[in-house]
Design a protein around this nucleic acid. Structure first.
Lengths: 143, 143
DNA sequence: CTGCATCCTTTGGGATACTG
DNA sequence: CAGTATCCCAAAGGATGCAG
């Protein structure tokens, strides 16, 4: 019996959060979610890819703008993309041209995560995350 | 300009995922989400607390059941709860009795995350996470 | 341009023992 | 019961340089 949001050992296996029957599931989705899109960049990569395919370098530059300034190194980006491709979240298309060109896009398993992303954006639109992390919004840096 | 799901530098600042205006937000919610509930247990803790307050030990035991078998050590659980309490996600109430009793419950900032949790559970109810992680559902371990 | 190889630092998580 | 103190190990992330 899983302990998702129902920690009795003999209940009907219905999630109290959603009303859905979870009796056929063995692993808590919250734990799995972290294992699948954990790490510092995976969620953000899904985010920037939802509009359409992007190239390796474009993804890297996108992460700088929405993140906290520091650029991702190619080694890390490469590993994140490979992980996600192997899990079936992304599709990788290589074009046989010079210079090399590779496009990454959302695979069905990645697209299935978009409703979660939407909910995260809705939460962020209220400013909740900036309150929690105490991001200053003064419009310019002090000093 | 943030690169959430709109990576032009001069757009209207509207999220293409939700249609919401994000021009007043500087940090990508996806990045912030990871910073706030990253780590192996925080999301799961929100999950088990959504029904009501639980004690330190009860939370620990809940994590074992929905996770992958291994119990969380008191040191880690203590740190996770302290982190989340300091960020305002949880409320901690200490009862002056012997033996000691402490209850943790969701604070408003933690409750604001529940819609995201619900969406994760919905996603999990389809079995998507077990497909991705290749969890066997044969009902018994092979051999 | 895309990515791998090396090396290094930081962080997260676990084992064990102990205290108010 | 609810933690804290030490010590340790593994994994994640970063810097730099090089290659197809």
């Amino acid at each position: 019996m899983m302990a998702l949001d129902n920690d009795t050992d003999h209940g009907p296996g219905v999630s109290l959060l959603t009303g859905l029957d979870m009796s056929h599931i063995t692993l808590c989705p919250a734990i799995a979610f972290g294992k699948i899109v954990g790490g510092r960049y995976k969620l953000h990569i899904l985010c920037v890819l939802h509009r359409g395919p992007l190239r390796f370098g474009e993804i890297g530059r996108s992460l700088v703008k929405g993140g906290l300034g520091k650029p991702i190194t190619p080694r890390i980006l490469s590993r994140e993309l490979k992980d996600m491709t192997e899990l079936g979240l992304l599709h990788r298309q290589e074009f046989l041209v010079v210079p090399k060109k590779v496009e990454y896009s959302l695979a069905p398993r990645g697209r299935a995560l978009l409703p979660i992303l939407s909910e995260i954006v809705r939460w962020g639109a209220t400013g909740a995350h900036e309150d929690i992390l105490e991001i200053r919004k003064t419009g310019h840096w002090p000093r």
